[in-house]
Each structure stands twice: as structure tokens, then as C-alpha cells.
């Protein structure tokens, strides 16, 4: 076997690989691109029985969402509910995750199991008791209610993942800092915390994505004054029947920010999404 024929075979193999992956990419990307394209399509092109690929782009659907559709306030609700629950979950998750990683006590594995099973609980089974409890304490149709609802999955997630990231750090670094005169808290805050920054950012982004993308909680708890973007999108479809233009526009607004922040932490995603079980690259 000469070198040239080996590299020729390798090239051929790569060509086949790319050909198959192009098909995979088509399957993956066509719906997304079609959604974005349709959001700029004028109404007439939208309602054509054959697909229209070329048209004069318009912002009319986006404009209609903001002027007639009250989109600004839904957007704000989404940002506040997802953002605040993320900040609370990550802050508390950092403290408890560190505490869990650095402490040893009897029954620790039971505490760990409790935390992970809270995160894994089926949403339908969580929504149900919370709905009644929220009625008692007047948290239905309120942003604080949504924030509490999102904490039910974001808090156990943040504790669990931050625990995994802190557990990776050798305690000797903090011990060395304490020998040099740092207090126990300074050893956490000045030494351990900066070292898990990638983990912290990944946790924050995943919490943000999970709560931003929520439908079930908001559909059950949110009312006119706390409606979020996913609910607005779902209602658009039932209310006006065939407003595909506005629907694709709101869809684009919901998904693009999460794709951007999600890809920004791609290297660490696998760690977060497998709840710490698989370490990335």
C-alpha cells in the first residue's frame, strides 16, 4: 500500500462522511431556517400553497407583535422570571454545592440522592401540588410565583452541578491559602470560586435556558400579568388561528438568544447536561 493510495482512500472516506453529515445538517437546520425565513415573509407569500423562497423581506410580523401583541411586557416577564430565578439558584447553588463538596457527614449520599431526584421529578407531578399551594398563598399569576416554580428545578440542578465542579478541585489549594492567613470563607471566595468560573457560567446559562424555555409551569400558573414568551407563542396559535407570520417571528425571538448563549459554553455543556456524569473535552 503506497502513501498516495492511502491518502486517496482517506479523502474518499472523508467525502462520504461529509455527504452523510450534510443530510443530517439538512434535517437539523431546515426547520430553523424555514422558521426564520418565514418570520420575514409578507402575508401573501406566507399563505401560498407552494413554498416561496424569494420575497421582499418585511418586519411587519415583528412590528405587529410589539404594537398589537403586547410582546414587550411578555419579553420582560420572561427575562425577569428566568433571570431572577437563575441568579438565586446559582448563588445558593454555589454556596451549597461547595458546602456539599467539602463536607463529610453520615447520610451524605442520601442528601445527594434527594437533590438529584428533586431535579428529575416529572414536571406534571410538581405542577399539581404547587398549583394548590400557590392558590393558598396567592402566588398564582405573579412573577414571584414563577420564580419560585423555576427554583424547584433550578436550585437542585445548581447545587448538584456546582458540587461536581467544586469536588474536582483539590482541597490543598484552599488549605495552602489558609496556611498563608486566609480565613475559611476567603479560601472559598478568593481561591475556589474563581477556579470554577467556567462551571459557574455554564450552570447559570443552563438554568437560564431551562426556565426561559419553560411552558408547563407558566401555562398553569401565569395569568395576564405574568405571561411569558412561550405562553404568548402558544396562545397566538389558538387565538388567531393562522397567524404563522407572527408565530415564526415570536419563535425566532424565543430561540435565538438561547442558541447563542448555549453555544457560548459548548465545551462545558456536556458536564452540565449529564448532571456531572460525563466530563467534556
Amino acid at each position: 500500500m503506497t502513501t498516495s493510495s492511502t491518502s486517496g482512500r482517506k479523502l474518499g472516506k472523508q467525502a462520504v462522511l461529509y455527504a452523510i453529515l450534510v443530510l443530517v445538517l439538512l434535517w437539523t437546520l431546515v426547520p430553523i431556517l424555514w422558521m426564520i425565513l418565514s418570520s420575514f415573509k409578507p402575508g401573501t407569500a406566507q399563505l401560498s400553497p407552494t413554498p416561496v423562497f424569494f420575497f421582499a423581506p418585511t418586519f411587519q410580523h415583528y412590528a405587529a407583535l410589539f404594537t398589537g401583541g403586547n410582546l414587550g411586557s411578555y419579553f420582560l416577564n420572561s427575562v425577569l422570571a428566568a433571570g431572577i430565578s437563575t441568579i438565586i439558584a446559582v448563588t445558593l447553588g454555589c454556596l451549597a454545592g461547595y458546602g456539599l463538596a467539602r463536607s463529610h457527614f453520615r447520610g451524605k449520599q442520601h442528601v445527594a440522592f434527594w437533590i438529584i431526584s428533586t431535579r428529575m421529578a416529572p414536571i406534571a407531578a410538581v405542577v399539581l401540588p404547587l398549583f394548590i399551594l400557590f392558590r393558598y398563598v396567592n402566588l398564582l399569576d405573579s412573577l414571584p410565583g414563577l420564580i419560585v416554580a423555576y427554583l424547584t428545578f433550578n436550585l437542585p440542578f445548581a447545587i448538584w452541578i456546582m458540587n461536581a465542579f467544586f469536588a474536582d478541585l483539590p482541597p490543598s489549594l484552599e488549605e495552602a491559602a489558609m496556611v498563608d492567613g486566609a480565613s475559611r470563607f476567603q479560601a472559598f471566595y478568593r481561591v475556589a470560586l474563581p477556579l470554577v468560573t467556567p462551571g459557574l457560567v455554564t450552570t447559570a446559562i443552563l438554568c437560564l435556558v431551562f426556565s426561559w424555555n419553560d411552558y408547563a409551569f407558566a401555562a398553569t400558573f401565569a395569568g395576564p400579568s405574568s405571561q411569558t414568551l412561550p405562553i404568548a407563542a402558544a396562545q397566538l396559535n389558538t387565538q388567531t388561528g393562522l397567524s404563522w407570520g407572527q408565530l415564526t417571528a415570536i419563535g425566532t425571538i424565543v430561540v435565538l438568544p438561547m442558541m447563542i448563549v448555549g453555544l457560548a459554553v459548548r465545551r462545558y455543556l456536556v458536564r452540565g447536561l449529564t448532571l456531572g456524569a460525563v466530563t467534556g473535552e
Binding site: 445538517l25 437539523t28 430553523i32 401560498s48 408565530l247
Partner: peptide, 28 residues
């Protein structure tokens, strides 16, 4: 290639459902 393939994963499932309705709508 990996970045592009990952994109659907970040989408709100409700939007995936609505987009699915759009793509399979019998008229449009």
C-alpha cells in the same frame, strides 16, 4: 458541524411543537 447539530437542543420544546405544526400544516 457539532455546533450546528446542537442548535435544536436549545429551543423551547413548545416552539419545537409549534414549528412542527407549521411545517406539517396541510395547507401551508
Amino acid at each position: 458541524v457539532l455546533s450546528l447539530i446542537l442548535l435544536p437542543m436549545f429551543m423551547a420544546p413548545v416552539i419545537v411543537g409549534l414549528l412542527g405544526r407549521f411545517l406539517t400544516d396541510s395547507s401551508y
